[in-house]
Design a protein around this nucleic acid. Sequence first.
DNA 1: CGGCGTACTTTGCATCAGAAAGTTGATGCA
DNA 2: TGCATCAACTTTCTGATGCAAAGTACGCCG
Lengths: 120, 120
Amino acid sequence: MPEAPYAYDGLDRVLHERARLSLLTSLAAHPKPLAFADLKQLCGLTDGNLSRHLGVLEEAGLVEIRKGYEGRRPLTTCRLTPAGRQRFVDYLTVLERVVRDAAEAARQGQVDGDPEPLPA
Amino acid sequence: MPEAPYAYDGLDRVLHERARLSLLTSLAAHPKPLAFADLKQLCGLTDGNLSRHLGVLEEAGLVEIRKGYEGRRPLTTCRLTPAGRQRFVDYLTVLERVVRDAAEAARQGQVDGDPEPLPA
DNA sequence: CGGCGTACTTTGCATCAGAAAGTTGATGCA
DNA sequence: TGCATCAACTTTCTGATGCAAAGTACGCCG
């Protein structure tokens, strides 16, 4: 019986990553597509990192990237795909469980006795 | 004004990692030290990975590892340090915020209109 | 027409998670 | 006793990857 109550398999590495988590949250929060520069600002990322992480998210089918123009300047915009939104929600469910488990745990184990030197 | 509301700086990479998060939660949940084999079971990790991640956590001062014997078999036990518990709690605070932001966001942005082809 | 700024992309490096192989020593058994 | 097995870890290796720095392309200003 391989019970592994704390294994948290649902923490997909594509989503469970600071920068990407940040991007997805930003995107989820804004119904309209967001521009490259907006995301950069919202998530505090450098151009290079943003480009890279967006690439990863697109590759995984989580976001849709559209390269167009505003006037005659290039403007890259980005939105969640429906599948992306779903996976994000699923991920969040797991994350909620983690937080619940952990918060509970942290409270419970608060008074951790003295370091007894192990009977043997 | 570098506002980056979704930057989540508090998501320390040492903690924000599936295996390690799993380990810390296990440890936080159990007031008594846990044995290597217990952690392996609880977190669904292989020997090698467990060893590696425990090493990282110890290096970072988050856990204390004690190598002893039970009878005459080696028995490695592990517990959170006070500092470790604190950092875990801090991390959880950020994670809670992420979940809150994101859950809110996911609900809000639910009805994402059709993919309008960008005026230009 | 030459430098500057915007808007990204590409490259390179250093780290690191996970898998596989190795180590040490106790126990079973013939 | 000698050999094989198993338990409990550790070490090594390799591919992936996050981040930073350099690079590209193009419009705009003077």
